[in-house]
């Protein structure tokens, strides 16, 4: 499945926009360091902050994309979100599920592979960004509000598994 993805350059502000959202390129160093910082700052719930920031920003982006491309059914929305994950350079996964929750099998992962390139194998789950993405994807697909889904890893490419796995459960 190949989906349309249009980026527009604003000649005045020199910013890049996709579906009304300002977009920016970043590298795996930054993603890894921000992830490590969130782990280091667990005493102020920084992992939760990272996940929820991912959920909220991705939800807005997905809703805008779905509206502007007339994507209406839950099945189409899940399939399109999966493709958008790849388009954005985040990796590749398979997804299954319904409004009660589901599962993501992570085949390739910017967050995990970037972490391994930067720090080596991890001793714990670090793909907090994708857990936020997963929560946003299910909520957007099934028309639920933010924090309707809890997403957590049960396997991790960063920890040495051949594939990652994220379980999504309706709260």
């Amino acid at each position: 499945m190949s989906i349309p993805f249009e980026v527009k350059f604003d000649d005045t502000t020199f910013s890049q926009k996709a579906y009304g959202q300002d977009m920016v390129m970043h590298c795996h160093h930054y993603m890894s360091l921000v992830t490590a910082l969130s782990d280091q700052l667990e005493s102020i719930n920084a992992v939760k902050i990272l996940r929820e920031s991912a959920e909220d920003s991705i939800r807005t982006f997905l809703d805008a994309y779905f509206t502007q491309n007339n994507i209406n059914s839950s099945t189409e929305k899940l399939a399109t979100a999966k493709e958008l994950y790849s388009v954005l350079g985040l990796g590749k996964f398979e997804v299954s599920g319904n409004d009660a929750g589901g599962e993501i099998q992570m085949k390739r992962s910017h967050v995990d592979e970037g972490w391994v390139q930067k720090f080596g194998k991890s001793s714990k789950f670090i793909n907090h960004f994708s857990c936020g993405f997963a929560a946003a994807m299910f909520a957007a697909a099934f028309g639920k509000s933010a924090r309707s889904y809890n997403a957590f890893e049960t396997a991790s490419i960063a920890m040495g598994d051949s594939e990652g796995k994220i379980v999504v459960k309706a709260n």
Binding site: C27, H28, M31, H110, E113
Partner: peptide, 22 residues
């Protein structure tokens, strides 16, 4: 593979709101 290798790094392209909210 859904990855964006370039400039000797892996690149991602995300809404600025993610980084700003964090």
């Amino acid at each position: 593979n859904g990855l964006m290798p370039g400039y000797n790094v892996l690149v991602n392209f995300l809404p600025t709101t993610f980084w700003n909210l964090f």
